[in-house]
Amino acid sequence: MSVIVLILPDFLLIALGWLLLHALGYGREFFNGAEKLVYFVLFPALLFQSITRTPLDLGSTTVLLACTMGVMGGGIALAWLSRWVMRPDPAAHASVAQCAFRFNTYLALSLAGGLNLPGAQATMAVIVGFAVPISNIGAVHALATRHGGQALSQIVRNPFILATIAALACNFLQIPIPHVLDVALGRLGVCALAIGLLCVGATLSIEGGRAHGPLMAWMVLAKLVLLPLWACLLTWILPLAPNERLVLLLFSALPTASSAHVLAARMGGNGRLVAATMSIGTLMSALTLPIWLKVWS
């Protein structure tokens, strides 16, 4: 399959989400409700079904999780390296650091499903489920001076994490999933990707970052270029299966999560700066993702 054909449908949905909000009169309340539905119901259902439907081997999964931890650690290190290299405003850096390592889960599962590789979406689901708590802890670290307890509570109760733990338990313990439940979860999962990508488009905004151009550029470069290079090195060192290697490399090249600006705003950070950085990274990833996929394939 052509790389452009793989990437284009998802970015068309992102563009449609932007048009629905800015040109077709759908209000912010509509998308706020849609985001809650995806976050608490649809996407956990997709994660659970993707993991439970593909048998996993504990040995190979351990290596995959080690590589995932290595990728996330590299992203966090790149984010904090800019603090010593660029000497940015501390408040701005604390807000935008997450843009170097957080990832768009909706795009992750959608692109993995389009790879036409056996078990690719299940592999991505495992990676995403394991990386969510790491990314959340890294994101709140700099912003948690006043809300550390609340942030920890949110991490423990994160529906992505709960769905992943439950699915891994069912998979490794070989607990059968009733057919009716599996079908219902599958239908919820189909809805998750489309609605999630529409919500990503509704969050796009390039306003609010003019005073921090170099810092924004660093974070976008780290997420879309430097982190995938680091992931390549990791996959050469650690013994991953070819399909797992491709999925992990795709994961490393994803743009920042669209919810990053919400976290910054809720914890007293510069939400507009994060929204601008996330938006620019998402738009730029339409160019970088095809390049990386072409190189790796």
Results as ranks from 00 to 15, higher is better:
L224D: 05
S258R: 00
E29W: 02
E29N: 11
I14L: 03
L240C: 05
G269P: 00
Q150I: 13
A167W: 10
R272D: 15
V262M: 15
M284T: 13
L226K: 05
R146H: 14
P228R: 06
I177Q: 07
L78H: 03
P178F: 01
G17Q: 07
G186N: 13
V262P: 05
F103W: 14
A257S: 15
L21P: 01
V274F: 00
G149W: 03
W80R: 13
A79V: 08
V96I: 15
S60M: 06
T203Y: 04
L250H: 07
L234V: 08
L181P: 05
A231C: 04
Q49F: 06
D10L: 11
I175T: 13
G281D: 12
P55K: 00
F160L: 15
T164V: 12
G138P: 11
E35Y: 07
A166C: 14
R245P: 07
A45Q: 09
F30S: 09
T68M: 01
V71W: 04
F103R: 04
V38Q: 01
T277H: 05
P228T: 10
R102V: 15
P239Y: 01
S60G: 02
A194D: 06
G189C: 10
S50K: 07
S135F: 01
G148K: 04
H179M: 11
A163D: 06
R87P: 03
A257F: 05
E207S: 08
L283W: 05
